[in-house]
Design a protein around this nucleic acid. Sequence first.
DNA 1: CAGTATCCCGTTAGATACTG
DNA 2: CAGTATCTAACGGGATACTG
Lengths: 126, 126
Amino acid sequence: MKNNTNIDNQEDKIGKNFVFDENSCPVTATMKVLGGKWKPILINAIYLTAPARFGELKRSVKGITQSMLTQQLRELEDDGLISRKIYAEIPPRVEYTLTEFGLTLSPIMQAMAKWGEEYRINKQKA
Amino acid sequence: MKNNTNIDNQEDKIGKNFVFDENSCPVTATMKVLGGKWKPILINAIYLTAPARFGELKRSVKGITQSMLTQQLRELEDDGLISRKIYAEIPPRVEYTLTEFGLTLSPIMQAMAKWGEEYRINKQKA
DNA sequence: CAGTATCCCGTTAGATACTG
DNA sequence: CAGTATCTAACGGGATACTG
């Protein structure tokens, strides 16, 4: 739960003048990569249907628009989570796959999925 | 990584007409709770300084405004992650603590923190 | 088929002022 | 001290049209 790098500085124990800074929070960094409406779904979809084609994703991811799909795929690619393979064919074909690094998200996604389910149960009671 | 409840339906294996729906993605549900600019930092801050007072949080969480702090604390409370204890004193005192349920986020936060650090290293190389 | 380019809107976050 | 109320700015996401 220690998500502030200042924590490493033993001089600066959690005292009255300790400061929590968003820029040094690695959880926030992860959220930026996984955040937004489509990222988790897309990662999951690509994981389960790899190699995933653009048109397939457009059909299978309910409600996503073409521009959103392109944009999100670019961001995932820039973050090194997915790889994009272009086939010089007519009609054009592009396939997306999770990279090795993208696969390292697996335990986090699983933990989040499990927690999310418990959260729903918890909310229904409240 | 299976974050679509449809996955449980064995009739509907990942085929050509499989649909990924945002409403049935528990990862997205978790993201809504943990998402936004301040939630991870606040959860961490409350965890490390509990019982955390309003004024303390305002001072220690760098850059947060009073209205944002109030709003985020309310949301965390409504989600059952933190508890709010009011002391009928002058001057008024309010203390925030993680609930049992809030503490169950710990493994996720730790996993995300670890991944976020590796992501940063990965990005610097690219 | 797999995109790019624009324009638009709703939500989220920030600034400021006021109060029990 | 610990809030609430209100207004404004920024950004994520959506609709539509066009293209190699």
